[in-house]
């Protein structure tokens, strides 16, 4: 009820990416809740559903912070909570430029059973997700992930590139990955009439992402890579729906992944908290 008290029409107008990050920050004082899901099936394994609950808050105009809580359910196996992540994004340049950099740092505390595939790094492959949950959950992964995000907006198009470096804190080598996304709204001008499911509220794009090996074995060999068209519908009330089929293009990749998400933005939380302090 408290959360709904902040509900007012607000829209993020963000590109419809699942893996790629842009330089767009959450509006200061706004809270976004999102529920993202991934359905996949390893080539010799069972179908699974990996889910992420995302809570994103705009701390400043140049700083956004997010918590993720993840879980998964595997057919003929079990359902379990697989851990959490804390992510922060900082925008070092205050204005808008041809290429806008954002610095990303994340701490993840996950089990080996995590199947949300929020990013693909190192030699992450579909075969690693064949391990039964009872065995996989024993492995603890505490990781620091950093990204260099470069993002540009031009004539309605967004082009974003992410370079990913991730380090498991238990003496494993650095792992690398990438994500690239390009997207635009289906209509550049807004119509003068109110509308909900109309062309101006749709955004479409495509993402490419994959692993680049480790510090000792850097490159494309034995790594997983995906191409994923993506589309979103942003309703005037602040709800956004997104869907993206992903196609693996190497033998280490899942043949097919389906991601889908729903998000809702709540403005004004920061102002409410400030009133509490007064």
């Amino acid at each position: 009820m408290l959360v709904l008290a902040f509900a007012a029409p607000v829209s993020a107008a963000d590109p419809p990416y699942f893996v790629t990050y842009t330089h767009h920050m959450e509006e200061p004082g706004s809270l976004e809740l999102a529920f993202e899901n991934l359905v996949g099936r390893p080539q010799a394994g069972e179908r699974f559903l990996g889910s992420l609950l995302e809570v994103e808050y705009g701390v400043k105009g140049w700083w956004s912070t997010e918590f993720y809580f993840s879980g998964q359910g595997t057919r003929n196996d079990s359902t379990l909570f697989t851990g959490y992540r804390w992510e922060n994004r900082f925008r070092p340049l205050m204005g808008e430029h041809w290429i806008n950099p954002v610095l990303y740092v994340e701490f993840a505390n996950l089990s080996g059973a995590d199947k949300t595939m929020k990013e693909v790094v190192g030699f992450d492959s579909q075969s690693k997700q064949n391990t039964p949950n009872a065995e996989a959950r024993v492995e603890k992964k505490r990781e620091i992930e950093t990204k260099l995000i470069l993002s540009s907006n031009f004539k309605g198009w967004n082009l974003s590139e992410n370079v990913i470096a991730e380090k498991n804190l238990s003496n494993e080598p650095w792992e690398f990955g990438y994500a690239v996304g390009v997207a635009r709204p289906l209509a550049l001008k807004a119509s003068p009439r109110p509308c909900r499911v109309c062309i101006e509220n749709f955004r479409a794009g495509v993402e490419f992402y994959g692993g680049l090996g480790t510090r000792h074995q850097f490159g494309l060999r034995n790594t997983a890579h995906y191409v994923a068209p993506t589309v979103s519908l942003e309703l005037p009330g602040g709800t956004t729906f997104q869907i993206s089929p992903g196609f693996g293009i190497t033998s280490a990749s899942h043949r097919f992944l389906l991601r889908f998400a729903v998000a809702y933005e709540l403005p004004g939380l920061g102002r409410y908290l400030r009133r509490l302090y007064r």
Partner: peptide, 12 residues
């Protein structure tokens, strides 16, 4: 950004 107003470059 320093004053809390976001950039709306995401809009066409």
């Amino acid at each position: 950004l320093r004053r809390g107003m976001p950039s709306w470059s995401r809009l066409p």
